[in-house]
């Protein structure tokens, strides 16, 4: 089955990112296809490249990057949510050569169209967060 996810909450403050990640591990193990994870609202903070949690804690951002590297899961950060929250700080982004630099490896920035595409394409769409 094709399953897409949406994450609406920031990591560390809310369990959403953890729940989603564990869900995805189980879904992949069961042979399902996770076609996209769409980061919306405060969920965009899951993509912060410069996030550095203490060494004895799970690294949520890194976990996403690894999920992309290992399973090719499409990680999409909503452009307008990100802009509103300063994730794509203009001058920095420009200086470093585009928005992509603000995001950790494996994430890409795109519009709500990609959420719609996932909603239409996937058999199930599961929302985590508030």
């Amino acid at each position: 089955m094709k399953i897409s996810l949406q994450i609406n909450a920031s990591p560390y403050q809310h369990q959403a990112a953890d729940s989603a990640w564990h869900f995805i591990q189980a879904a992949i193990l069961s042979g399902h296809d996770i076609c996209r994870v769409f980061f919306y609202h405060d969920g965009v903070f899951n993509a912060l490249r410069d996030s550095r949690p203490p060494g004895d804690e799970r690294d949520v951002v890194k976990r996403w990057s690894e999920l992309h590297a290992k399973h090719g899961v499409d990680l999409v950060v909503c452009v307008s949510s990100a802009q509103r929250r300063g994730l794509l700080e203009q001058t920095v982004a420009k200086k470093l050569g585009g928005y992509q630099s603000a995001l950790a490896d494996g994430f890409r920035i795109a519009g709500l169209g990609l959420l719609m595409e996932a909603l239409i394409d996937a058999d199930r769409h599961i929302t985590f967060g508030d």
Partner: peptide, 16 residues
């Protein structure tokens, strides 16, 4: 606002 954006986009994608 962000929730309504989803609603509007669904319409723009010709979803009922």
């Amino acid at each position: 606002q962000e929730f309504l954006d989803i609603v509007l986009m669904a319409s723009a994608f010709d979803q009922r």
